[in-house]
């Protein structure tokens, strides 16, 4: 049996790793997006007691290697009597880490948001919350679309780190097959194919979303 035939016979293991990766990725990236939006909203006010610690937290996360955060959640939290299993530690680490990146991307765009539009909203009787969610946030998301696409790919790749805290995802599947049959090259080539395929599909989707914003004059696709 050739090495490729061995891998083909073990394809169920790849598929289950792949679905696990996609599940982790989908859940954590959705949570990260929500965290990013929530942080941007909290940064809206001019209350330094809230905004200064938040900025420090965001910067702290961005300057931290992702793997360390995953370690902290999985091995460090039990010291405080909080026990998350590997899967939830991984999802939580990804969500918080990339949530901070999202927040930073949004914050950059918010700085250049036209103040006249905010004034127009106030003049029409909008209060902070509705103004943020209906007028500011949609525009910020459209404007930062290419950066968000980039961040999604980073997040996808970071899921591979979770093999180190024993999460059974795609890289773990390749790892285990290469260990069992001594065929590392072929096993890892297969997972590269998976990661590439997902990335390419995401790129296409993000690009298609660009048409929506281009129609509104946000960028040119």
């Amino acid at each position: 049996m050739s090495n490729w035939e061995i891998l083909w016979s073990a394809r169920d293991q790849f598929w289950s790793g792949f679905f696990s990766t996609m599940e982790i990725f989908g859940l954590s990236i959705s949570a990260a997006f929500a965290i990013g939006c929530g942080m941007l909203y909290l940064l809206e006010g001019s209350r330094p007691r809230l905004t200064v610690p938040l900025r420090v937290f965001i910067d702290g996360m961005r300057m931290l290697p992702f793997l360390i955060l995953a370690y902290l959640l999985y091995y460090g939290l039990p010291a405080f009597d909080i026990r998350l299993d590997a899967w939830w530690s991984g999802v939580g680490a990804l969500a918080v880490y990339h949530g901070c990146y999202f927040a930073e991307i949004f914050r950059g765009a918010r700085l250049t948001f036209p103040p006249g539009q905010v004034e127009a909203a106030k003049a029409h009787g909008f209060t902070k919350g509705k103004m943020f969610f209906r007028l500011i946030l949609p525009q910020i998301v459209m404007q930062t679309r290419p950066l968000l696409g980039n961040q999604l790919i980073y997040a996808l790749k970071d899921t591979a780190f979770l093999v180190i805290i024993t999460v059974q995802e795609l890289t773990a599947a390749a790892n285990s097959l290469s260990g069992t049959y001594f065929i590392p090259t072929e096993a890892f080539i297969v997972v590269i194919g998976f990661y590439w395929a997902v990335s390419v599909v995401m790129e296409i989707i993000i690009k298609q979303c660009g048409r929506f914003s281009a129609k509104r004059g946000f960028d040119h696709v």
């Binding site: 006249g116 127009a120 909203a121 007028l135 525009q139 459209m142 914003s213 509104r216």
Partner: peptide
């Protein structure tokens, strides 16, 4: 003066 329509 500068209209300030909501472009989205």
């Amino acid at each position: 003066q500068s209209f300030n329509l909501w472009p989205h």
